[in-house]
Protein backbone atom coordinates (compact mmCIF):
# COMPACT_ATOMS: atom_id res chain seq x y z
CA UNK A 1 0.00 0.00 0.00
CA UNK A 2 1.28 3.41 -0.92
CA UNK A 3 1.76 5.74 1.97
CA UNK A 4 0.19 8.83 0.56
CA UNK A 5 -1.33 11.54 2.76
CA UNK A 6 -4.97 11.06 1.71
CA UNK A 7 -4.90 7.38 2.60
CA UNK A 8 -3.53 8.10 6.01
CA UNK A 9 -6.17 10.72 6.60
CA UNK A 10 -8.85 8.35 5.57
CA UNK A 11 -7.67 5.64 7.98
CA UNK A 12 -7.58 8.08 10.83
CA UNK A 13 -11.06 9.26 10.09
CA UNK A 14 -12.34 5.73 9.92
CA UNK A 15 -10.63 4.92 13.19
CA UNK A 16 -12.59 7.56 15.09
CA UNK A 17 -15.87 6.39 13.55
CA UNK A 18 -15.10 2.80 14.45
CA UNK A 19 -14.29 3.88 18.00
CA UNK A 20 -17.61 5.72 18.16
CA UNK A 21 -19.51 2.74 16.84
CA UNK A 22 -17.86 0.30 19.25
CA UNK A 23 -18.44 2.65 22.18
CA UNK A 24 -22.13 3.05 21.37
CA UNK A 25 -22.54 -0.70 20.91
CA UNK A 26 -20.81 -1.33 24.26
CA UNK A 27 -23.07 1.20 25.91
CA UNK A 28 -26.21 -0.44 24.56
CA UNK A 29 -25.02 -3.89 25.61
CA UNK A 30 -24.12 -2.69 29.10
CA UNK A 31 -27.51 -1.00 29.47
CA UNK A 32 -29.19 -4.20 28.34
CA UNK A 33 -27.79 -6.37 31.12
CA UNK A 34 -29.81 -4.87 34.01
CA UNK A 35 -32.94 -5.25 31.88
CA UNK A 36 -32.22 -8.97 31.48
CA UNK A 37 -30.94 -9.63 34.98
CA UNK A 38 -34.02 -8.10 36.60
CA UNK A 39 -35.98 -11.21 35.56
CA UNK A 40 -33.63 -13.52 37.50
CA UNK A 41 -34.79 -14.58 40.99
CA UNK A 42 -34.72 -11.57 43.28
CA UNK A 43 -32.92 -11.42 46.63
CA UNK A 44 -36.03 -12.27 48.68
CA UNK A 45 -36.77 -15.28 46.49
CA UNK A 46 -33.18 -16.52 46.78
CA UNK A 47 -33.39 -16.11 50.55
CA UNK A 48 -36.22 -18.64 50.61
CA UNK A 49 -34.32 -21.08 48.40
CA UNK A 50 -33.40 -23.25 51.40
CA UNK A 51 -35.86 -24.69 53.91
CA UNK A 52 -35.35 -26.78 57.02
CA UNK A 53 -37.85 -29.57 57.73
CA UNK A 54 -38.31 -31.40 61.01
CA UNK A 55 -39.05 -35.10 60.36
CA UNK A 56 -39.68 -35.96 64.01
CA UNK A 57 -43.50 -36.12 63.80
CA UNK A 58 -43.49 -38.48 60.79
CA UNK A 59 -44.54 -42.10 61.43
CA UNK A 60 -43.70 -45.00 59.11
CA UNK A 61 -46.06 -44.96 56.17
CA UNK A 62 -46.75 -41.24 56.46
CA UNK A 63 -45.91 -38.56 53.91
CA UNK A 64 -45.80 -34.79 54.05
CA UNK A 65 -45.70 -32.23 51.29
CA UNK A 66 -43.60 -29.10 51.74
CA UNK A 67 -43.46 -26.16 49.38
CA UNK A 68 -39.89 -25.55 48.28
CA UNK A 69 -38.96 -23.00 45.60
CA UNK A 70 -42.60 -22.91 44.58
CA UNK A 71 -42.77 -26.66 43.98
CA UNK A 72 -44.24 -29.44 46.13
CA UNK A 73 -41.69 -31.60 47.89
CA UNK A 74 -42.68 -35.16 48.87
CA UNK A 75 -41.12 -36.44 52.06
CA UNK A 76 -42.14 -40.02 52.90
CA UNK A 77 -41.20 -42.16 55.87
CA UNK A 78 -41.24 -45.48 54.00
CA UNK A 79 -42.39 -48.76 55.46
CA UNK A 80 -40.02 -51.76 55.52
CA UNK A 81 -42.08 -53.31 52.76
CA UNK A 82 -41.74 -50.30 50.52
CA UNK A 83 -37.99 -50.18 51.06
CA UNK A 84 -37.57 -53.86 50.21
CA UNK A 85 -39.76 -53.43 47.15
CA UNK A 86 -37.57 -50.55 46.05
CA UNK A 87 -34.40 -52.62 46.40
CA UNK A 88 -35.71 -55.93 45.14
CA UNK A 89 -35.61 -55.12 41.48
CA UNK A 90 -33.65 -55.67 38.31
CA UNK A 91 -32.01 -52.34 37.59
CA UNK A 92 -31.41 -53.19 33.95
CA UNK A 93 -35.12 -53.40 33.33
CA UNK A 94 -35.61 -49.77 34.31
CA UNK A 95 -36.08 -46.88 31.92
CA UNK A 96 -33.86 -44.66 34.09
CA UNK A 97 -31.70 -47.11 36.10
CA UNK A 98 -30.77 -45.84 39.54
CA UNK A 99 -30.31 -47.92 42.72
CA UNK A 100 -32.45 -46.98 45.70
CA UNK A 101 -29.45 -46.09 47.89
CA UNK A 102 -28.60 -43.31 45.41
CA UNK A 103 -32.07 -41.88 45.83
CA UNK A 104 -32.46 -41.88 49.60
CA UNK A 105 -29.62 -40.70 51.86
CA UNK A 106 -31.33 -42.40 54.76
CA UNK A 107 -33.30 -45.32 53.36
CA UNK A 108 -36.17 -44.61 55.77
CA UNK A 109 -36.84 -41.17 54.33
CA UNK A 110 -37.47 -40.56 50.66
CA UNK A 111 -37.24 -36.86 49.68
CA UNK A 112 -38.29 -35.98 46.13
CA UNK A 113 -39.60 -33.07 44.10
CA UNK A 114 -43.26 -33.92 43.49
CA UNK A 115 -43.34 -32.84 39.88
CA UNK A 116 -43.88 -35.43 37.13
CA UNK A 117 -40.88 -35.39 34.80
CA UNK A 118 -43.22 -35.66 31.85
CA UNK A 119 -45.06 -32.35 31.74
CA UNK A 120 -45.01 -31.01 35.27
CA UNK A 121 -48.19 -32.33 36.93
CA UNK A 122 -48.15 -33.35 40.59
CA UNK A 123 -48.35 -37.20 40.96
CA UNK A 124 -50.65 -38.86 43.49
CA UNK A 125 -49.05 -40.83 46.31
CA UNK A 126 -49.38 -44.58 46.92
CA UNK A 127 -51.20 -45.24 43.70
CA UNK A 128 -50.41 -46.82 40.40
CA UNK A 129 -49.27 -50.28 39.48
CA UNK A 130 -46.06 -50.15 41.51
CA UNK A 131 -47.44 -48.83 44.83
CA UNK A 132 -45.45 -45.65 44.52
CA UNK A 133 -46.77 -42.60 42.73
CA UNK A 134 -49.09 -42.16 39.80
CA UNK A 135 -49.43 -39.13 37.60
CA UNK A 136 -53.09 -38.63 36.61
CA UNK A 137 -52.30 -36.30 33.71
CA UNK A 138 -50.79 -38.82 31.30
CA UNK A 139 -50.56 -42.01 33.33
CA UNK A 140 -46.95 -42.27 34.45
CA UNK A 141 -46.35 -44.91 37.14
CA UNK A 142 -43.53 -44.47 39.67
CA UNK A 143 -42.37 -47.11 42.14
CA UNK A 144 -41.75 -46.80 45.88
CA UNK A 145 -38.41 -45.19 45.15
CA UNK A 146 -39.98 -42.65 42.79
CA UNK A 147 -38.48 -44.30 39.69
CA UNK A 148 -40.38 -44.23 36.43
CA UNK A 149 -41.69 -47.70 35.60
CA UNK A 150 -44.42 -47.18 33.08
CA UNK A 151 -45.87 -44.33 31.09
CA UNK A 152 -44.56 -41.35 29.11
CA UNK A 153 -42.32 -39.72 31.75
CA UNK A 154 -38.66 -39.91 30.64
CA UNK A 155 -36.84 -39.88 34.01
CA UNK A 156 -37.30 -40.67 37.69
CA UNK A 157 -38.79 -38.11 40.05
CA UNK A 158 -36.07 -35.58 40.80
CA UNK A 159 -34.19 -35.63 44.12
CA UNK A 160 -33.46 -32.14 45.48
CA UNK A 161 -30.10 -31.32 47.07
CA UNK A 162 -30.47 -31.87 50.84
CA UNK A 163 -28.45 -32.71 53.90
CA UNK A 164 -29.34 -34.26 57.26
CA UNK A 165 -28.53 -31.70 59.92
CA UNK A 166 -29.22 -34.35 62.57
CA UNK A 167 -31.17 -37.62 62.76
CA UNK A 168 -34.53 -36.05 61.99
CA UNK A 169 -33.84 -32.58 60.53
CA UNK A 170 -33.08 -31.99 56.89
CA UNK A 171 -32.03 -28.85 55.11
CA UNK A 172 -33.18 -28.70 51.51
CA UNK A 173 -31.49 -26.49 48.95
Amino acid sequence: MKNNPTDEKKTRRDFIHITSGVTVATGIAAAGWPLIDQMNPSADVLALATVEVDLEPLQPGQSISVLWRGKPLFIRYRTEEEISKANDIDLNALKDPQPDEDRAKNSKYLVMIGVCTHLGCVPLGQEGEYGGWFCPCHGSHYDTSGRIRKGPAPTNLEIPPYVFLDETTIKIG
Binding site: R13, I16, H17, T19, S20, T23, V24, T26, G27, A30
Partner: peptide
Protein backbone atom coordinates in the same frame (compact mmCIF):
# COMPACT_ATOMS: atom_id res chain seq x y z
CA UNK B 1 -16.83 8.21 32.92
CA UNK B 2 -18.07 5.98 30.12
CA UNK B 3 -20.62 8.54 29.00
CA UNK B 4 -18.07 11.34 29.05
CA UNK B 5 -15.82 9.20 26.85
CA UNK B 6 -18.71 8.33 24.53
CA UNK B 7 -19.75 11.98 24.26
CA UNK B 8 -16.19 12.94 23.39
CA UNK B 9 -15.70 10.37 20.63
CA UNK B 10 -19.14 11.10 19.20
CA UNK B 11 -18.30 14.79 19.20
CA UNK B 12 -15.08 14.13 17.28
CA UNK B 13 -16.99 11.90 14.84
CA UNK B 14 -19.60 14.57 14.44
CA UNK B 15 -17.03 17.25 13.66
CA UNK B 16 -15.30 15.01 11.12
Amino acid sequence: LFLVFMTTVLFISYRK
